[in-house]
Amino acid sequence: MSLRLSTVILPVHRWHEGGRERWQRAEELGFHAAYTYDHLSWRSFRDGPWFGALPTLTAAATATERLRLGTLVTSPNFRHPVTLAKELISLDDISGGRVTLGIGAGGNGFDATVLGQEPWTPRERADRFGEFLPLLDRLLTEDAVSHTGTHYSADEARNVPGCVQRPRLPFAVAATGPRGLKLAARYGQAWVTTGDPKLYEDGTPEQSVEALRGQVEKLGKACADIGRDVAELDKVLLTGFTPDRNTLLGSVEAFVDFAGRHRELGFTEIVVHWPIADSDFAADQAVFEEIATEALGRLG
């Protein structure tokens, strides 16, 4: 099974002070895609520079030619399907059809309360996502959409001419629970996971692999329940949140071992964070670039 390697470039650099060069370098290194987080701020980066995801991706689209671009991931926390659809259609047009929308239900944190609301419970997030994603699917595939929902509505929302990619740009749906996996099975062209968060602090790499194996099996069942072949979905692992996060970018050999074990689980794309000094994503830039150019060739 072939495996693709992609990267996440967090929007922490001014565009003219290193931002543009990172996206261009990602293309030069041969990454399949470069993504960015769609947050208004994030964890330890909250008090430092942090730029908007969609404007950053638009700039990246004009600075690159082949690299796929996308969010990893956006969520309903501060988005509405109507306005998001318009922005995505514009971005898909500017990029020449190179956009993938990573999307999930969201979580707690700054984005969950920044608009002044109380954070939603897990059930409320699932309810909203269950309405958000089908409406977004319609908005990206139909010229005019009207919908009256519990959480989201649209009144003759116009989206002519639609996406460059047909019938719409691909969805990479982040999910691990049963409701999210059903949405991934029905609407996704890819599925995204970061692993089992319960193993982040004290788990072992072996436990993480078994947890991911279980997630892949549940995705397969969700697809089978609606008569879909799970092989139709790409399986994307966003690294940096598993127990071996501090070693997998330590050497090409370590990454090849990691990638091989996860390819065996059925993953088709592994995403690594572009190094950021003095952060959770610190790594040796030279080793990172060596991984980008050599690791997949060594997998065989």
Rank of each mutant, 00 (worst) to 15 (best):
G195S: 08
G195H: 02
D196Y: 06
D196S: 13
D196H: 09
P197F: 06
K198E: 14
K198Q: 14
K198H: 13
K198F: 04
L199Q: 11
L199N: 08
Y200S: 13
E201Q: 15
D202N: 15
D202A: 14
D202W: 13
D202V: 04
D202C: 05
G203W: 12
G203L: 10
P205W: 04
P205G: 11
E206R: 10
E206T: 13
E206Q: 14
Q207M: 14
Q207D: 15
Q207N: 08
S208E: 15
S208M: 14
V209E: 09
V209K: 04
V209A: 12
E210I: 05
E210M: 05
E210G: 04
A211F: 06
A211L: 06
A211V: 04
L212H: 08
R213F: 00
G214W: 02
G214I: 05
V216P: 01
V216E: 01
V216Y: 01
E217S: 15
E217P: 00
K218N: 10
K218G: 01
L219K: 06
L219W: 09
K221P: 00
A222W: 00
A222L: 01
A222E: 02
A222V: 05
A222G: 03
C223S: 10
C223I: 09
A224Q: 09
D225W: 00
D225Q: 09
I226T: 12
I226R: 07
I226W: 05
I226Q: 08
I226F: 07
I226G: 06
I226Y: 05
G227R: 01
G227M: 06
G227D: 04
R228Y: 02
R228I: 10
R228N: 05
R228E: 03
V230D: 08
V230F: 07
A231R: 15
A231V: 07
A231Y: 03
E232N: 08
L233M: 10
L233S: 03
L233D: 02
L233P: 01
D234H: 04
D234R: 10
V236F: 00
V236D: 01
L237F: 13
L237A: 10
L237H: 03
L238R: 03
T239H: 03
T239R: 02
T239G: 11
T239D: 07
G240A: 10
T242E: 14
D244N: 12
D244Y: 05
R245P: 03
R245S: 12
R245K: 13
N246I: 04
T247I: 11
L249Q: 07
L249V: 01
G250T: 06
G250S: 10
G250R: 05
S251D: 04
S251K: 03
V252C: 13
E253S: 10
E253M: 02
E253N: 06
A254V: 00
F255W: 12
F255P: 04
V256Q: 09
D257P: 00
G260F: 05
G260E: 12
G260T: 12
R261F: 01
R261Q: 14
H262M: 13
H262D: 07
H262T: 13
H262C: 12
H262K: 06
